[in-house]
């Protein structure tokens, strides 16, 4: 039995990565769910919007770097983040004005909104590639590791190393701040209360003098903030690649549905559930069990539930299971 080594091993390869990935998914799912709560449609362009936001931030980061403007050990992209949010808000507001507002005024069916968002997805997909191409881009600079595996081993005398990247800490920290801000906004501010009222019962909200245009604007702005954060943090932590961002759409949808679409708490919980299951289901527990078992014993197989290629499929599997067993998601209702 070697308990400490087992814990370090599992933290390094399962707990920390899935916590970080989960935070990124949670931010994405929160954006999807807030748009759904107010506008009542699943925004298929969410992944491409994240991609667009990240590209804007990358360009501004490069510009800052060329000016010699960096933030020391902290990645320059964080300085560019507010500008990224600004541009993304403009984009999102533009799509709202030119496309979605028309269908809302005509009270079209949700499915028409979805098709329109597919159109937006196509356009953004092309525009992003027009500007930046299809290559993988790493735009992380500054201090890479806070804890290095080798130093940790030396310090603790354990066989297993623990490494902690700066981006991982940043992701979790910023996600907590963003989520706290969203919840504060929804619960405490007048606009947030108006949004919740609108989400609960549109007609009643209109009767009590809530301006729907303002509510919709606020919703898109919050979603733009979340979109940019999720996109940039994911890109910083891994790397930016246009195709990957399209594929992120599905785990994000899965997270939103698992939690109960339209439910902010559900979206966050769903993000972590999806991330933990993806990582856990594809992790080989052989070494972990060897540490826990008696001395000199080792499992015959890899003790891996699914092979790593199925990482993405796990989130869809959860999605399908939830739709089968509990279509409303963990939290019922469609109220913000």
């Amino acid at each position: 039995m070697d308990f400490l080594n087992a814990i370090v091993l599992i933290s390094n390869y399962v707990l920390i990565p899935s916590l970080v990935y989960g935070s990124q998914l949670a931010l994405g799912a929160l954006g999807v769910t807030i748009v759904f709560g107010i506008m009542r449609f699943a925004n298929f362009a969410h992944g491409e919007m994240m991609s667009f936001a990240t590209v804007c931030t990358i360009f501004i980061t490069w510009w800052f770097q060329s000016l010699g403007l960096t933030a020391g050990i902290i990645p320059t992209a964080l300085l560019a983040l507010p500008f990224g949010i600004l541009i993304t808000s403009l984009l999102v507001w533009g799509t709202e004005r030119s496309i979605f507002s028309y269908y809302r005024q005509r009270k079209s069916k949700p499915v028409i909104f979805v098709i329109a968002s597919v159109g937006v997805m196509f356009m953004l997909n092309g525009i992003v590639r027009l500007f930046i191409g299809t290559d993988e881009i790493i735009f992380m600079d500054g201090l890479k590791f806070i804890i290095k595996a080798g130093e940790f081993k030396k310090w603790s005398g354990l066989k297993e190393g623990l490494s902690l990247k700066q981006t991982q800490v940043l992701t979790v920290l910023l996600a907590i701040i963003a989520v706290a801000w969203v919840f504060w906004f929804l619960q405490k501010t007048k606009m947030g209360k108006a949004m919740r009222a609108f989400s609960d019962n549109e007609d009643l909200a209109l009767l009590s003098g809530i301006n729907p245009e303002k509510v919709v604007q606020a919703t898109w702005f919050i979603s733009a903030v979340l979109i940019t954060l999720a996109g940039v943090l994911y890109g910083l932590d891994k790397s930016y690649k246009p195709l990957v961002y399209f594929h992120l759409l599905l785990p994000i949808f899965a997270a939103a549905i698992v939690g109960g679409i339209g439910q902010p708490i559900g979206a966050i919980l769903g993000g972590y559930i999806v991330a933990f299951s993806e990582v856990t289901a594809t992790y080989a527990f052989k070494k972990f069990l060897r540490y826990l078992g008696p001395e000199g014993w080792s499992p015959d197989s890899l003790v891996q539930f699914l092979s790593t290629e199925y990482k993405f499929a796990v989130s869809f599997l959860i999605l399908v299971l939830v739709l089968l067993i509990r279509p409303t998601g963990l939290f019922k209702g469609r109220v913000l």
């Binding site: 949700p110 499915v111 599905l250 549905i257 679409i261 989130s315 869809f316 999605l319 399908v320």
Partner: peptide, 14 residues
């Protein structure tokens, strides 16, 4: 309808 869309999209990816 949009749940159905997401579900079928997910199944096709699987």
């Amino acid at each position: 309808s949009d749940y159905f869309a997401i579900a079928t999209l997910g199944i096709s990816e699987i």
